[in-house]
């Protein structure tokens, strides 16, 4: 079991790191040949940073769009962020002081995270328009995240797991050695699904996380009259047609 989980996590980590690196590079090198910011758009780079920050932190466009999706979606993402930050302590000998500070918040965030997911799941079933656009993977993704959160809550409140042993296992794992895995059903469920999440990430719609930063309608400066924007392939097209 110890060997299995150590190998699984090495594999899963490699997949998400390499997969995301590949996708980010792909987004980076593919040109955006035309200026297509959704206007009104900022006219300066600083303005774009501000627009993107609002998009990523408070989900501005989604807020404009639909309050139900916004409230469940934002609740889930912010909670997930807190929960992840809280988990840092399982990988640190001496957790950073802010990691210690957020521990209680991170624990409660697990509840709001699960509530957000349930809200999104119910919407997906109840609203006919959203049901129409949902593929099986859209439901499975929510179910996977739900059980990650749910198994975490179980370990916190129902069936405690030997957290010291988990920490020792992962500290050993980070040093590329295999420690003793404290076998418990909720932990097995929790970690198996997390590994699955890491593996699926770079191949699925979870790519919206890096994607949003590369979205030309959000990250472009509105200055086409002032500054000529030309992609490499478009410049080549120009030169060829002159020749």
């Amino acid at each position: 079991m110890s060997t299995f989980f150590a190998l699984l996590f090495w594999f899963a980590t490699a997949v998400i790191v390499l997969g995301l690196a590949f996708k980010i590079r792909q987004y980076w090198v593919t040109p955006a040949p035309l200026k297509i910011p959704t206007t009104p758009a900022p006219t300066t780079q600083a303005g774009v940073v501000y627009r993107m920050a609002k998009e990523v932190i408070v989900f501005e466009s989604l807020f404009k769009s639909n309050k139900w999706i916004w409230i469940f979606g934002w609740m889930f993402h912010m909670s997930l962020f807190l929960v992840l930050a809280r988990h840092l302590r399982y990988f640190q000998d001496q957790p950073w002081f802010w990691v210690n500070i957020i521990q209680p918040f991170g624990k409660y965030a697990a509840f709001t995270m699960v509530i957000g997911l349930v809200g999104l799941f119910v919407r997906r079933i109840v609203v006919a328009r959203v049901r129409y656009i949902s593929a099986p993977s859209d439901y499975l993704m929510l179910i996977m995240l739900f059980f990650i959160g749910f198994s975490g809550l179980i370990m916190n409140y129902v069936s405690h797991v030997d957290i010291i042993a988990v920490k020792e296992f992962f500290n050993a794992w980070m040093g590329f050695s295999i420690g003793d895995f404290p076998v418990s059903v909720p932990l097995i469920v929790h970690l198996s699904l997390v590994a699955l999440l890491l593996i699926v990430f770079p191949f699925s719609k979870l790519l919206h996380a890096p994607g949003v930063f590369f979205s030309p309608t959000r990250n472009q400066v509105d200055n086409p009259r002032e500054k000529r924007h030309i992609a490499k392939w478009a410049a080549e097209l120009e030169n060829n047609s002159k020749g």
Binding site: P33, L62, K205, A231
Partner: peptide
């Protein structure tokens, strides 16, 4: 290969339903 927007848009949709109406 030519349009980053297309690639990002095709990858990123999470089917949240915000656009449906």
């Amino acid at each position: 290969q030519k349009y980053r927007g297309l690639r990002v848009f095709l990858d990123s949709c999470v089917k949240c339903g915000a656009c449906t109406d």
